[in-house]
Amino acid sequence: MKHALITGAGSGIGAAIARTLSAEGYAVSLLGRRSQPLQATRDTLTANSRTCIVTCDVTDANSVAQAFSEASQALGPVEALINCAGAAPTTPFHKLDAAGWRQVMAVNLDGVFNCCAQVVPGMRERGSGRIINIASTASLKGYAYVSAYCAAKHGVLGLTRALALELADKGVTINAVCPGYTDTDIIRDAVANIVSKTGRSESEALATFTRTNPQGRLIEPEEVADTVSWLCSPKARSITGQAISVSGGETV
């Protein structure tokens, strides 16, 4: 049974990926800052699936090292790493201070580096492995009011491409999956915030996000999870260094 480790597994896309991979027979390690959401995810997984819950702050290299050690002791070497932890606070650039910039970079970019650093040596030695970075369409284009997030996600894509070349002859693939606006708690909270601050209706607030998608809808977390599942499979062994947009054509 292969071991997949998912960061940000307590909700949204990370939880959907955990459910999909568990259903396909993976042993899954669920990483996040708080144990309660991780437990809630575990309760939705395939019955009798092998699962490990580890609380971890991906911005802290020591915390990451300890978490990966615990996960590997419980379920064996990590054969598929899915970096899904992230945060996208909205701030106009002229109000963004250095501390806010640094925090967004720490979660979205440093966290990916910290986790990759834990698995790459073992994957190189074994001659196999999969790394999938959930990078967002913000790695492919700009969005107003999230300049730090866009910069971090562009960095994730750069890291993905560079590392893919380093590992291409080692049996290891690394790709970025780039979802558009996805139907998660983050978007639902954003819609509620727009409604409360502007007085617009819920449908009008939701259109703020759906209108960027040529299909006129939010992406479902399961669509992202299915893309990750394919990239983890032997069928995708020639796919590496790619940015796969799951966005209804937004980045065409």
Rank of each mutant, 00 (worst) to 15 (best):
V112G: 04
Q36V: 06
I82M: 03
S63L: 00
A15I: 03
E222H: 11
A106Y: 01
A67M: 15
S247L: 09
E125K: 15
V78Q: 10
A117K: 13
N133G: 11
S72V: 10
Q39C: 01
A47L: 04
C52K: 13
N175A: 04
L30F: 02
Q73V: 14
S203L: 09
A168D: 14
L45F: 10
A144V: 13
E70R: 08
G142E: 13
A190W: 02
M1E: 12
I132V: 15
N48H: 03
M1F: 01
V78N: 05
K153E: 06
A9S: 14
A190D: 04
C116N: 02
E70G: 12
T44Y: 09
T227C: 13
N83E: 01
T41C: 06
F113Q: 02
T208S: 14
A138V: 08
D169C: 04
G199A: 04
D185P: 10
G127I: 13
G100Q: 12
L109D: 09
G111I: 09
L75W: 12
G127P: 11
N114I: 10
G32C: 01
G248R: 01
S147T: 15
A40C: 05
N133K: 06
A47Y: 03
N114F: 11
R33N: 02
T7L: 00
P37S: 10
D110A: 02
F68I: 12
G25F: 00
K153V: 02
T184A: 08
G32I: 14
D110C: 03
V252N: 05
T91M: 14
T44D: 12
A71S: 08
A87S: 14
L30Q: 12
I239T: 12
I53Q: 11
L231P: 12
V112H: 02
V107L: 09
T46I: 08
C56W: 02
V191H: 08
A80E: 05
L165Y: 00
R217Y: 12
A225K: 13
A152W: 00
P121T: 05
T182M: 07
T59N: 08
I82F: 02
G171A: 06
I132R: 13
A192P: 03
I134W: 04
L159Q: 12
G249R: 02
R188S: 11
V104S: 11
G25K: 00
Q39E: 11
S49F: 12
V54F: 08
T240A: 00
T90H: 14
M105E: 07
A148F: 09
E204Q: 13
A168C: 14
A61F: 14
S128P: 09
D110Y: 07
S11F: 01
T44C: 01
Q66K: 07
D57N: 09
Q66D: 15
E250V: 09
P37C: 01
A40W: 05
G76V: 02
G155D: 03
C150P: 10
V246R: 03
H94K: 15
T51M: 00
I13C: 02
T198W: 06
Q66I: 15
R188W: 04
